[in-house]
Design a protein around this nucleic acid. Structure first.
Lengths: 205, 205
DNA sequence: GTTCCCCAATGACCTAGGTTAAGAAATAGC
DNA sequence: GCTATTTCTTAACCTAGGTCATTGGGGAAC
């Protein structure tokens, strides 16, 4: 049963990579060897602030969030990661320094995780992964840049509406309080926005 | 004179890469072959919105900025790039789609630039560059994430003070109006901040 | 079924930062 | 040196979004 589970849970990652670039048998075996499945129950931490982020997570099923808690106790969400998304604190991961971020599960979440040491080995043993991860991090960068640009140039209302276009798979899965923390607004203000929008539907944009 | 100039301006890039990871002779020749020097005069565009970003720029001397102009005509600066920094609109560059961003020169700027086609060839001919650029983009990602986090959780004053720590090489080169556009505040508010700060010096942090 | 917890909505009041306009100072161009 | 342009500062007034407190609804746990 345990072997079957382990085998069943690597396949999504192989499928994911195969969609990017075909892997040969050796490369697939390296993946199976270095990625480990892990279940995080709702509310469990994958990373706590003050600890080093030692793993790189690929979400197979469920949803993680990465966030900072500021000195006033306010939660600021940097990223959600649901199925087929990667998540970690890259800065802490590579520098091996304590992170100021947290990663926890918004629902029971199955991930495939790889340690820093194993990832470096993977790059050495199969340089194709340099390309794969270069492309992955480029795409993450592009997404993040769009978000920063939006954050400095759009209203909260524009950001809220954009959320549904960009994250359709998440928007009915997340409570409003989490969406607000991601958009950088208070839940109270989000309530107001929603009320305003339901009264004055926007023309199709 | 022209050969001498071309030779003189590739060296900073070779030095830069050598600091990351030693290059062999073939790899150095590829760099010399595929990167081209270009001078942008103050106010000249390297990229105009509506055009595809066809080049990846490495700044040898001077300073470029990348920004968006919103529908109210307000300028939002995403990035400055002075000596030894890279700049481009990665999204447009890779997707070959028109960019909504501009890149122009804040002072006369000498760059080494590489086209998308040449960069792809470089990856094919010297896979070591997959690693090099993966690391570069990861570092850019980490910086951008820090900036987003700061943007959603810090006050304008905190952001202004952090600017001097993070960009010491830029802060006495840039007019306040550019710093304001980078920090996401108005020049008027920045003036107020500066006045406030000069009256009540902050305790050493 | 009951209790507790979390989430969403609401209203009164507040504030960090924006807008508009104008004047002064510094810089650039001829 | 003179003129034009850009940058910086300032004040009065404004607003998008925050804070605090409360209520109601739904889901989870026992």
């Amino acid at each position: 049963m345990k072997g079957n589970q382990s085998e069943a849970s690597i396949q999504p990652l192989l499928d994911y990579f195969d969609r990017l670039i075909p892997l040969n048998r050796v490369e697939k075996e390296l993946i199976a060897e270095k990625f480990h499945p892990r279940l995080y129950r709702k509310r469990q931490y994958a990373l706590q602030e003050g600890d080093v982020c030692t793993q790189f997570y690929f979400v197979v099923r469920g949803c993680l969030r990465m966030y900072k808690v500021d000195d006033k106790g306010v939660t600021h969400i940097l990223q959600f990661a649901a199925e087929n998304y990667w998540i970690n604190d890259l800065g802490s991961f590579h520098s091996i320094k304590p992170s100021e971020l947290n990663i926890d599960a918004l629902e029971d979440t199955m991930v495939l995780q790889i340690s820093h040491k194993d990832l470096i080995e993977l790059y050495m043993q199969a340089p194709k992964f340099d390309r794969i991860f270069r492309v992955l991090v480029e795409n993450s960068f592009i997404r993040l840049q769009k978000r920063l640009l939006q954050n400095i140039s759009s209203t909260a209302e524009e950001r809220y509406q954009s959320f549904f276009e960009v994250y359709p798979h998440l928007s009915n899965r997340l409570p409003q309080v989490q969406i607000a923390a991601f958009l950088g607004i208070t839940p109270e203000f989000l309530s107001r926005l929603r009320k305003r929008l339901s009264k004055t539907p926007r023309a199709k944009s």
